[in-house]
Design a protein around this nucleic acid. Structure first.
Lengths: 149, 149
DNA sequence: ATGATATGGTTGCAAATGTAACCATCTATT
DNA sequence: AATAGATGGTTACATTTGCAACCATATCAT
């Protein structure tokens, strides 16, 4: 058990460090320009990209706690970027959908995101992002299996 | 400009989602067992693995805000897992070093971490973690270049 | 040397977050 | 049908976080 432990190759630590750095550098781009918090951006992005969703689905899609989602959704609603529609099949659920203004905002932030990623892509070289994301997908798959163990 | 935007392949979003999931699944392992918060674990890990460091260095090493570091360090100090040593060359700086009990705690959590990673490694298959981490390192390098732009 | 600016670190305060409890509705068991 | 969980979602409250302001010390320009 005297194996060495190398923090530099411990995945949760590495992921946290990189994600924090990347997230903050991108957050700066939309925070000032759109007065949007991170959960708000993530909920908007999920809705804009996937389409109509329930709050729980947004949480699952973005790994956000349900209270975080609840508050982000409320904030988007207050801005009239999102409207709720009752689900007749299951009246606990609310369908959430972006308004036209919501889509407009979404497209604007998506432009920022595209530019950000293009820049990163240039710095990283061809195929790098794809390779990383393939790895991330594997991890997500593994995590699912792990839950059951 | 009508390029599509695919959230699923937007790196900050993907990183956030995976990291949140991984982090939480590992945090469960030490939270109950050691009553340790995430920042505390990260500061302890940095100190145990790198050795004596200043608070600012811990922050740089782990992408943590300086107030987060300050509070985590205080918490570790209260548990007698860490002691501060003045730096004579620059009296603003404090050298932070784990006590013997601190190292003991570090080794115990490191065991957990090793087990966690071994498990993940088994689920992912040979070389997967290394490949992912190589990608993360590239991103970190790119971010540094990006700051200057 | 002296003042201006930068850096390491802490703290007050407001804002963001998670936990637990809650309401409403749905599903399963009887 | 009636009752006992489960699930979607919100909210009160306590904890955690980040920003800004601050203190102390160091560095730089003059």
């Amino acid at each position: 058990m005297a194996e060495p432990f190398d923090l530099e190759s411990f995945l949760p630590y590495r992921l946290n460090r990189v994600t924090e750095a990347v997230s903050q550098s991108f957050a700066r781009e939309y925070r000032q320009r759109f007065q949007m918090t991170r959960p708000e951006w993530r909920a908007l992005a999920a809705l804009g990209s996937v389409g109509c969703m329930a709050a729980t689905e947004i949480g699952a899609h973005s790994s956000m706690h349900k209270t975080k989602v609840s508050r982000a959704v409320r904030a988007l609603e207050v801005r009239r970027w999102l409207k709720r529609r009752p689900n007749e099949a299951d009246r606990r659920v609310e369908h959430l959908e972006l308004t036209p203004q919501g889509y407009k905002a979404y497209r604007e932030v998506a432009d920022l995101a595209r530019a950000y990623q293009a820049n990163l892509d240039r710095l990283l070289g061809a195929g790098a992002i794809e390779r990383i994301e393939a790895g991330l997908s594997e991890v997500e798959r593994a995590l699912v299996n792990r839950q059951q163990a």
